[in-house]
Simulated scan of single mutants.
Amino acid sequence: MNIDKGLLASLEDDEARKLTQLMDQGIRIPPQPRVLTELARLVTSGVDDVRRLAATIAEDPGISALLFKAVQSPVFRAHQPFTSVVRILQVVGVSQTTNLVRAIALSAGSAGGKGGQQMPALEAFWARSRAVAQIAMLIAEDRVSVCNIFPDQAYLAGVFHDCGVAVLMQRFPDYCKALRLDEPGHWPNLAEEDQRFSADHSVVGFLVARHWKLPEFVCDAIRYHHDFSRLEDHSARTMIAILQLAIHIYALNSALPSPDWAANRGEVADELGIHDEALAEFIDVILERYQEH
């Protein structure tokens, strides 16, 4: 895949250099599956017949199955159970369902890897990403009147936020080995791993997000999700706050370290409009709702 020159121009010099080197080494940006491109084409052209849209989604049984799993979230509890893709489109909405399908298609399509040895690590990686996405969706639902970030957008960002890791794993077998993602109770310091491989998983993830035509503010949130200070756009900063809190809650639930939390806790609370003294209680509420799922 050739790098979009406009994309390179939007990166800092060091980021552009690293990305060019990685592309020269053969990293592969996962293509959008045909079902997703056809669904996006229909939606963009104004097709609103939910039966036709549902039939397109149903052409991929794997994506359909994961879509049903995604809408089991407490976010949609008032409308459960969902008995058909048509019903999901009617209740969740066409554009919102398309966002869910886009996120699901990435994780479903990137789970194969090269060779069987990577399968457990990739499966564990995407399971974590979907869990973070589910938590992000709960946070967005609760704070939507304050933050104007919707659950489907948060789910999309949650699945995509570390997708650059999966791309690097599929190209560099030692990256997969070093991360030990298939070991229960282990999650690495990705900044250290990026240094080891002269890579930047956030910039690679940004490239994937741009290639998959995610909203610009979601792309920016993926690029800077480890560093609030480099971003001024309010929507992207709010999405980063949702991601940071979702990652922290996932870590609490999994008894894992949360290395970014101490540095970002205050900004997360500010962006989400939560008083510092109320943050712990809010975390408990979201964690309880997630554990009910």
Rank of each mutant, 00 (worst) to 15 (best):
H226K: 12
Q134V: 00
C176L: 10
Q244C: 09
G116L: 15
M239A: 04
R130S: 07
D152N: 10
S84Y: 02
G205S: 01
A263V: 06
Q195R: 13
A40E: 15
I88W: 00
S10L: 10
E216V: 13
N253V: 00
P215H: 06
V144P: 03
L11M: 11
S254L: 06
P184A: 03
E216M: 11
S198R: 13
A280N: 13
D49Q: 04
L22T: 07
T83K: 12
Q25D: 14
L7G: 08
F228N: 10
S258P: 11
L122E: 02
Q32C: 11
L190S: 01
M119A: 12
R171P: 10
I57T: 01
A166E: 04
V92S: 04
D13N: 09
I29K: 03
L138N: 01
D270M: 10
G273C: 04
P215R: 02
W212F: 11
A221E: 01
S110P: 03
C176T: 06
A40L: 15
G62R: 03
S95N: 14
P74Q: 08
T37H: 08
G6R: 07
F125Q: 00
V85W: 02
N148W: 13
P33V: 06
F206S: 09
W187H: 05
L100Q: 05
E141T: 04
S84Q: 03
I249F: 02
E38N: 12
V208I: 12
I242A: 03
L214I: 09
R51D: 15
V167A: 03
W187Y: 09
C176V: 05
V75I: 14
H201T: 01
L256S: 00
E232M: 09
G6W: 06
T98R: 15
S202P: 05
R52A: 13
R34F: 10
T97V: 07
K213A: 13
I135F: 02
E277S: 06
R210L: 10
E288Q: 14
E183P: 00
D220V: 04
I27R: 05
D24K: 15
I104G: 01
I283Q: 15
D48F: 05
N264M: 12
V35L: 15
F125S: 00
M119C: 07
A199E: 05
A133V: 00
Y155N: 02
L11A: 09
V101P: 15
Q96H: 14
M1Q: 13
A246R: 01
R171S: 12
Y175W: 15
S45I: 07
A105Y: 01
M169V: 03
P61E: 04
T83L: 14
V167Q: 01
I242P: 08
G112T: 10
A209S: 15
F217D: 14
L53K: 00
R180M: 14
Q118G: 15
C147R: 04
V92Q: 03
S64K: 13
E38T: 11
G93L: 06
